[in-house]
């Protein structure tokens, strides 16, 4: 590129009136070894800009918080499941206790019924005795 054009571009550059494309032309011009002596300071300038562009961020990108968020919800769900399970288990246990009580009562009632029937058997003897006694006493009257 002819020097005159570069000179006008440099003027425009200092006034911040160059477009990005024009700035790239300048960049390309000053990247070569042979530069007009009176424009040498721009070689340093554009050389630096090109160099500065190469710096990279090398650390890994951290994205942990989202994961932690997910874990938080998972733990909430786990607690809910546990609570529900405990609630159901409690129900089951209560039912068991009630059944046990029912069986106990039934056993007690059976025992009562058994003894009661034993009592009525004895009363049958008594009735027999009464009948015989009546016969005897009736005869005497």
């Amino acid at each position: 590129m002819e020097l005159a054009k570069i000179e006008t571009l440099v003027e425009k550059y200092l006034e911040a009136e160059t477009t990005l494309a024009e700035e790239q032309q300048l960049q390309a011009y000053f990247a070569q070894d042979e530069v007009a002596p009176h424009l040498q300071e721009y070689q340093v300038l554009f050389g630096y800009f090109a160099k500065a562009k190469e710096e990279r961020y090398t650390k890994p990108v951290p994205l942990k918080p989202k994961k932690r968020n997910y874990l938080k919800w998972a733990s909430v769900a786990a607690v809910a499941v546990l609570m529900f399970g405990a609630y159901l288990g409690n129900d089951y246990r209560e039912q068991k206790i009630a059944e046990q009580a029912y069986q106990d009562t039934q056993e007690a009632l059976q025992l009562l019924a058994f003894n009661y029937s034993k009592g009525t058997e004895k009363i049958a003897y008594l009735n027999e005795f009464e009948k015989t006694k009546n016969k005897i006493f009736k005869n005497e009257q």
Partner: peptide, 12 residues
């Protein structure tokens, strides 16, 4: 643009 022009001139 004004800030850029100033900065460029100062650097130069």
């Amino acid at each position: 643009r004004v800030a850029l022009s100033r900065a460029r001139k100062e650097v130069r």
